[in-house]
Write a protein that binds this DNA or RNA. Sequence first.
DNA 1: TAAATGCCATGATAAATATCATATCTAGGA
DNA 2: TCCTAGATATGATATTTATCATGGCATTTA
Lengths: 231, 231
Amino acid sequence: MRELENLNSCKSCVYNKLLFGGLTDEELDFFTEHKQELEFKKGEIISKEGAPITSFLYLKEGLVKLYKESPGSKSQIISIAKPLDFISLLSIFSNSTYKYNVAALEDTVVCSIHLDAFKKVIGQNGPFALEIMSKMSKMYDDIIESRFEINRKHLRGRIAFILLYFSNHIYHSDEFELPISRREIAELIEMTTENVIRILSEFRKDNIVQIDGKNIKLIEPERIESICKLG
Amino acid sequence: MRELENLNSCKSCVYNKLLFGGLTDEELDFFTEHKQELEFKKGEIISKEGAPITSFLYLKEGLVKLYKESPGSKSQIISIAKPLDFISLLSIFSNSTYKYNVAALEDTVVCSIHLDAFKKVIGQNGPFALEIMSKMSKMYDDIIESRFEINRKHLRGRIAFILLYFSNHIYHSDEFELPISRREIAELIEMTTENVIRILSEFRKDNIVQIDGKNIKLIEPERIESICKLG
DNA sequence: TAAATGCCATGATAAATATCATATCTAGGA
DNA sequence: TCCTAGATATGATATTTATCATGGCATTTA
């Protein structure tokens, strides 16, 4: 992890309008004083389950995974966060320590705002509070929704689901490089690594995807959609 | 559904201190004007997926289930809400329509505060906003946590989990009456109705629970704990 | 009262999935 | 450079779970 020099003010930050629409100049200056940009290399741990929460974190660049490790069983990936997602989201208002781990899947830049400063502004700016609540709710809803969706599918449907997830929600293209290993896919969609590999092979043999290592190309997205829908 | 007469002010409501610690008298009066208590009989639907959200709802008395119905597959129960839980929670700040259904498992009293009024107070009272966010986060965290926990267990572990859930979190007793059918248990912990019945029978034969219809008595809670932990 | 419906119950069987074994390939470290 | 650990790959087998069939029981409805 590397702390970037604190050159940029939040006021000039291209993300502030997307994320923090309703803030005054004073509030943005206040955040500027209490923020820090952090850079993480691929594979680095950003936060750990059980560690105290001291800041509000959101992703500026890169890709991270939120995951849980439970003794004696495999780890489970809760979700993948992309730029502009809040990554210290779950737990931040409900717990003093993180309830899950966060690790960088790519080189990543995180903006870290000191928690007290963040809460102070929420407390004084109602519309901002509502905005954060709305974004928070959306993220929680998405996680819960996709958990239930994955659970009612069979293995082929789950693989179809995750391929479409990367294609539609992360890369916006039929062709992309998987940011995670087969094992991590397994941890994300509740199946074994062997079966992830097996079913990706099936899809390749059926000619609905091209696979070369981590490089994926969806040849027949419509068929993948229908496999996903059927479950 | 029956609308109760609006006799009680929020100021005198026994729940207000538990739920809404930081409100001024004026704000409580404001809520009194914009609230309505609703009574639902067991089995009644409180809100439906897709219906517009017009109020903030919380449970005063009774027990409800939050569930999703998806065409062509069984419904899935997301969670069970008990008194003081927010039931219009998910979606309320992120969507204009409900993302799931809510139905009463017992005779139930719901307090309904008009959404605009609720948002207005959040916007003007920062500590209250933080309080609501904290409670919201906790509920979301619990749902997500238990989803992941259920998913890494085998059937026996799931049954143990749900027995302990009712015992520890709902009834606070080793002896209780199940508020839901075997089919609903199945919808809640991701298994088939037959297997719920089968495994409850196994537990009965193994003498770790007494079962008489919906009446349950945990004979050996420690063994149930260990079955739950092992998965 | 009778019929019907839904819930509880159990067994037999089929299907889905995990586990185990093994092999190849690759990337990173000594 | 070689060596090792981990990722990918595939087959055989075992385990877990779902499905199907059937019946009893209770509760609602005609």
